[in-house]
Design a protein around this nucleic acid. Sequence first.
DNA 1: CGCCTGATTTAGATCGATCTAATCTTTGTT
DNA 2: AACAAAGATTAGATCGATCTAAATCAGGCG
Lengths: 329, 329
Amino acid sequence: MQQVADHAGVSRATASLIVRGSNLVAERTRKKVLESMKELGYVYDRVAANLRSRNSSTVGLIITEIGNPFFSELLVGVHQELDTKGYTVILGTTFESAEKQDQLLSKMLEYRVGGVIMSPVSGSSPAVIDRLKQWDIPVVLVTKEPANSNSDYVGIDNVLGGKLAVDYLIEKGHRRIAFLGGPSESSARMDRQRGYIRALQQAGLPFDDSLVVTSAATRQGGREALQQVLNQPNPPTAVFCYNDVVAFGVMLGLKEAGLMPGRDLAVVGYDNIEEAAMTSPALTTVMASPILVGTNAANLLHKRIMGNEDHVQRIILKPELVIRESCSM
Amino acid sequence: MQQVADHAGVSRATASLIVRGSNLVAERTRKKVLESMKELGYVYDRVAANLRSRNSSTVGLIITEIGNPFFSELLVGVHQELDTKGYTVILGTTFESAEKQDQLLSKMLEYRVGGVIMSPVSGSSPAVIDRLKQWDIPVVLVTKEPANSNSDYVGIDNVLGGKLAVDYLIEKGHRRIAFLGGPSESSARMDRQRGYIRALQQAGLPFDDSLVVTSAATRQGGREALQQVLNQPNPPTAVFCYNDVVAFGVMLGLKEAGLMPGRDLAVVGYDNIEEAAMTSPALTTVMASPILVGTNAANLLHKRIMGNEDHVQRIILKPELVIRESCSM
DNA sequence: CGCCTGATTTAGATCGATCTAATCTTTGTT
DNA sequence: AACAAAGATTAGATCGATCTAAATCAGGCG
């Protein structure tokens, strides 16, 4: 920058004003300096700039699992939205490990990010988040939140989602409905289960806890959960799955057992990831619009960083049931 | 850091040595300073550190499309590998726009990344990459490369992949085989087409260019390409698709037209993304192991950054055919 | 005890920008 | 013509670390 300034016959300070697009500077000088920059092939050092000005233009995104399309779609939403606002995203994945999550948060601190969007590891305490807040780094939680965390939150009405799914199954005539998959400590899972129970109660159906199985939120988890429930003396006629990925595992497991999803067992998923429309039978599922969660979170974080929001926000998106063929009995 | 140093009764320089894990410092002092850090809640400022020491510990990853599972799996590979080596990934998506790609490269420069892994936009010239090299920033290209770029490259033997797929279809008795989808300028697509043509020639089959259709590398693109080829007077009995996502679109289109993939038209994909095993019928496809591409690229970049590689590397992974049910006629 | 050697520690400059507060130029007013 | 107000520019300190080269310290030896 010194070189540019010298070449254009101005001071460093003036050159600095220009790269920042200040209107304090005369049009003639601006042109002159801009030319010098082009001529010398000057590259702005955003890192040095951030160091001095204390505002970061980078934000951290911490998710629990990158393999799950729900999160990669959420990433798309966040990324798109923040990109247009001029932020740079630095990415971290916890793989559901609290230790990794701590490391990542430390890293975000060390990089002095302007804010963080995170989906906390199931069962993590609000303390980890307070660590960021202590440094005045805004945090927006997505999809899950630790009990009584007092943070901005963007998520999905999981109780409603669970209820929608199970109401539909009941309406279709099912009376033994299982709830399969997902990690037990996850707040999202607990809410979906709450919806499940509420629907049963409302229909006067008994709650049978042998029909509720937790597992990893993966295909493999879904397969295993299905085994447990299928081997019972009185197996269910329908299953509501923690998410679409689990549902895929369940369908895979059914096929392996020579059973036909939709005919021999009704299956409902959750998330409505793109692939849900492509399986056979196409998956009936609760639409959670991960991209929308992402864009909302990004917008909220942006406002927070700008200081345009004063009190804690909670954005709860309403899910909808997408009916396809996996329960057409 | 000044505060920590004062509190521990040492100088800034000593404290700095300690955070960097130097062995020049006495064990007793180290302990003392580490304690002061804990007590004062000190947070290392990696940004400031990078500014002075000129080595970045962040690397850029530029991909063309985040929605495509091929890339999100590649991202997983890169991310995992670089994570363990202590790098931080900053992410960019070009959406196949050369302009966006330029912007992203500028951004990477401004952030003084230590290196870049990128899948260049189809048809981009080597000039954009030279811009980085001029600043001594190592670049590893993945999956596609501009004509005579002289860079490190990790990719898949697409000619072989195309040949494997079409050989198989020919062996199954097909004689009219289409090649559908993908952007025309993409080097990956051109190579797969080359393999397709080679297989036809070897079997003494004629090349009919009305059976080759380009499109966006998306589901929708696949659907559209299918229409074109299906409305012909003499439609094909098998299609080889540019990638799995396109193949999904094709299968969707077939179902919409009341046709059954595998029975009425054989379908082969490319990539072997996770979902390929889950569709119905399960997709026969060429396994390209995006994760492996990612980890290889990450390793190569790491070596380059360390200065452990002297001459240009090209890593070409050999694909394999994964036979499932989508051509079981 | 003084000197040398190797192990520790440190002062001060530096990375590339921004910020503050002051200075230098214009322009407008009476 | 004198002076104030507005407009444009700048010197020098600063952000939080690292680097260089020099200073300090401890132990061993003649």
